[in-house]
């Protein structure tokens, strides 16, 4: 019996100490990791979809609240005037959620382009939705275009062999479209 108690105590103590240590390290690196992720993951995508902006997109990111929910948005400016906005929406793909960043031109009301931020699709198949040959489908499309894959009557060429992933991207884009009018209102207000 005494041995059992000792085992429980030792393991508990080790796990607790390790837990605290990890929590401390996580706390210490949290902000830094967030910055790195912004720089390496979102940075290239944001700079691509809002490519003709003159401001530092990552630095000027802001959080706004729409209908009680917070969204991280990137506002592109030209001559200090906001001209476009980009934000991320997710949809369930084949291997998990796919995070899609969609850029909108608020002057002309069109989709400027999309970038895939996070995904866990099959390499070589679903993962190919992040290649420009697929994402270029969405460049400069009006808001009333049919954002669906061709099999479903839309205009998007699905990645061959990866219809589920392609559909997920389309559905994430449609989610952004729903949110876009609200976000535009907020930006115009500013």
């Amino acid at each position: 019996m005494k041995e059992y108690i000792r085992m429980v105590v030792v393991l508990t103590v080790i796990a607790t100490v390790c837990g605290f240590l990890l929590a401390a390290v996580r706390k210490g690196t949290e902000t830094r990791i967030e910055e790195q992720v912004l720089l390496y993951v979102q940075g290239p995508a944001v700079n691509k979809v809002l490519s003709s902006s003159t401001n530092d997109l990552i630095q000027d990111r802001q959080e706004i609240s729409v209908q009680g929910q917070d969204y991280l948005i990137f506002v592109g400016e030209r001559n200090t005037q906001p001209w476009a906005v980009a934000f991320e929406r997710t949809a369930g793909g084949y291997g998990g959620d796919i995070g899609v960043l969609v850029g909108f031109d608020i002057e002309r009301d069109i989709v400027t382009g999309i970038g895939i931020l996070t995904h866990s699709e099959t390499p070589g198949l679903g993962a190919r939705v992040s290649e420009s040959i697929f994402t270029d489908n969405f460049n400069n499309k009006t808001l009333n275009a049919n954002f669906n894959v061709k099999q479903d009557g839309g205009f998007v060429d699905a990645v061959s062999g990866a219809t589920i992933s392609s559909r997920a991207v389309c559905s994430a884009v449609r989610k952004s479209l729903e949110l876009y009018p609200e976000i535009k209102k907020e930006i115009v207000k500013q």
């Binding site: 990890l22 390290v25 690196t29 990791i33």
Partner: peptide, 10 residues
């Protein structure tokens, strides 16, 4: 995990 976090940060 410490290595992972530190590597992610730096």
């Amino acid at each position: 995990v410490i290595v992972e976090l530190v590597m992610q940060a730096f």
